[in-house]
Computed example of a mutant assay.
Amino acid sequence: MKLLIVSDSHGLQEELLTIRERHADVDKMIHCGDSELPQDSKEMSAFLGVRGNCDYDASYVNDRVESLGEATCLVTHGHLYNVKMSMMNLHYKAREVGANVVCFGHSHIAGAELMDGVLFINPGSMLLPRMRKERTYAILVMDGTEATVQFYDISGKHIPSMQLTCTLSA
């Protein structure tokens, strides 16, 4: 299973379409909110999206839980879980819904971390990154419970120093 994960694109349109085309081989595309685009727009049509604090289209859901091969994935923006202060609330939500992968945004800080067998992925921001200069997105490749997260800048250049390979909880 291969996933494209983006977040916090804040109105970018051509860039979303370009990234979709660049990674047309993925099984699913996830947008973790703050697209600032309507859910039925051509840019968002291929994405499983959620509502961020800057999204005004009420047809987006706040959270979604997706079965992705061996994984159960919680997708949310993160603002409702106070992710800028602590990961604890989001970790509790992951446990509550049985997720072993969590995709979220809001902080604009790219990163991936395994906590108690749950993989947390923030793809960063495609428009306004924090803590690094690159505007980023992520690709998650899963083979059973083995997972690899790779980060890319908006031009498609791989950022090897950010890669994480881990084993998910079953």
Rank of each mutant, 00 (worst) to 15 (best):
Y152S: 10
D116H: 09
R135Q: 10
C73K: 03
S35C: 11
R132N: 07
L37S: 08
V149Y: 14
N122C: 07
E96G: 11
G124L: 14
T167D: 02
T72R: 14
Y60H: 04
K28M: 15
A170C: 07
M1T: 12
P129I: 07
V149Q: 00
A58S: 12
S169E: 13
G11N: 06
G124V: 15
M142Q: 02
I5K: 10
Q163H: 10
E21I: 00
G105D: 03
N53M: 05
S59E: 14
M142R: 01
G105E: 03
H10L: 13
M115T: 11
I159H: 02
T148K: 05
F151G: 15
K133S: 13
L127Q: 05
P160W: 00
G156A: 08
D25G: 09
E36A: 01
H10D: 11
E113L: 12
N89K: 12
D63H: 06
C32D: 01
H79P: 02
D57I: 05
Q13N: 03
E113F: 09
I19T: 04
N122R: 09
F151P: 13
G33E: 02
N82R: 15
E70H: 06
E36V: 01
N100C: 04
T72F: 14
T18M: 02
R130M: 08
A71M: 06
S155I: 00
K93S: 01
R20N: 08
E43A: 08
T72S: 09
M1A: 12
M29P: 08
V75L: 08
D27W: 07
L4V: 07
N53C: 09
Y92F: 14
D27Q: 09
M1E: 01
H23L: 14
H108E: 01
L3Q: 02
I159A: 00
E43Y: 05
S169G: 15
R51V: 09
P123E: 06
K133Y: 01
D63M: 13
S155G: 13
C73W: 00
Q39V: 03
N62P: 02
L119K: 07
V6Q: 13
S161C: 04
C103V: 05
A24P: 04
C73G: 07
D27S: 13
F104R: 00
G124E: 06
R20G: 01
F151D: 10
F47E: 15
V101T: 03
V75F: 01
F120W: 14
V118G: 06
G52W: 00
V102T: 04
T167E: 09
L12S: 07
D116K: 15
G144S: 11
V61R: 12
L74D: 04
G69T: 12
D116N: 15
L168D: 08
D143V: 02
S169W: 00
K42D: 05
V26T: 10
R132D: 07
G11F: 02
I109K: 15
E15I: 06
K42H: 12
I30P: 05
D25T: 09
G33T: 06
C103F: 14
A112D: 02
Y81H: 07
E146N: 11
F47Y: 15
E43D: 06
L80V: 11
D40R: 01
